[in-house]
Amino acid sequence: MKKLRTIAFDADDTLWHNERFFHFTQQRFAELLGDFAEPDHLDARLLAAEKRNIGHYGFGVKGFTLSMIETAIEVTDGRVPATVIAQLLEAGRDMLDHPLELLPHAQEAVEGVVDDHHLLLITKGDLLHQERKLAQSGLGDLFDGVEIVSDKQPQTYQRIFGDLPGGTQASMMVGNSMKSDVRPAIDVGSWGVFVPHDLAWDLEHAEAPESERYHAIADLSELSDLVAKIG
């Protein structure tokens, strides 16, 4: 019997670019608020707002945009010009409308394992935005299922993998976040494969787990060989 029957992929910064658009927009945010606070102070205040607001707005561009506006109001003691608020809203819309760009080896990696495995996409964020990106990616037809979740915790993977053939023990999660993709999947007995990305959101950092089911690859071009090795 095959050891590995289900392979799940993260989406943002695993299959396609995402964090760099947040990075560029945060630079624009710092320029707009440059007369009121230093960039490092703004970054810290914005990160605190994002962390505070995840439970209210969830992950994604809309929550990020609202956190920028909230931070702008806070650091200016309510004196932020309406024109700046308008530009922050425009920046958020630009992020939502930005054309999707697949990461190197993404399509080949998915196509390389599709024939012999049940494939899932498991991503968090805004439902409409993630559905739009998947449609633009051209990869949608390769997945047997798509899960757009509010967060990725061990119980998320237990729910998704638990009812599939082989359960959690025969499942693998592939992603760029140690905190959201790798560690919680391993916590329920699945394989976790870390694919590093040059840019990573501060709230997604975590230590690598000490587990035989943990693997790190340089990029997605190495995934097929790893899957074949596991069997």
Rank of each mutant, 00 (worst) to 15 (best):
residue 138 G to M: 10
residue 125 G to H: 06
residue 120 L to M: 05
residue 103 L to H: 01
residue 62 K to Y: 04
residue 104 P to K: 09
residue 140 G to R: 04
residue 124 K to Y: 15
residue 129 H to P: 01
residue 123 T to H: 09
residue 117 H to E: 12
residue 111 E to R: 10
residue 126 D to V: 11
residue 144 D to E: 14
residue 74 E to T: 05
residue 67 S to V: 14
residue 106 A to P: 03
residue 72 A to W: 00
residue 116 D to K: 08
residue 144 D to V: 13
residue 72 A to S: 07
residue 146 V to M: 13
residue 133 K to V: 04
residue 132 R to P: 13
residue 156 T to C: 11
residue 150 S to Y: 12
residue 165 P to V: 14
residue 61 V to F: 01
residue 95 M to V: 01
residue 157 Y to D: 12
residue 128 L to H: 02
residue 163 D to M: 10
residue 87 Q to S: 14
residue 155 Q to W: 12
residue 65 T to K: 02
residue 113 V to P: 03
residue 120 L to D: 08
residue 95 M to L: 02
residue 127 L to I: 12
residue 154 P to S: 12
residue 132 R to E: 08
residue 93 R to D: 13
residue 149 V to C: 08
residue 133 K to M: 09
residue 90 E to S: 03
residue 151 D to S: 14
residue 118 H to N: 02
residue 118 H to M: 13
residue 70 E to A: 14
residue 128 L to A: 15
residue 116 D to R: 04
residue 149 V to A: 14
residue 79 R to S: 05
residue 99 P to Y: 03
residue 149 V to L: 03
residue 166 G to D: 04
residue 113 V to M: 08
residue 70 E to Q: 02
residue 125 G to P: 10
residue 73 I to K: 06
residue 95 M to E: 00
residue 93 R to A: 09
residue 108 E to H: 12
residue 117 H to F: 14
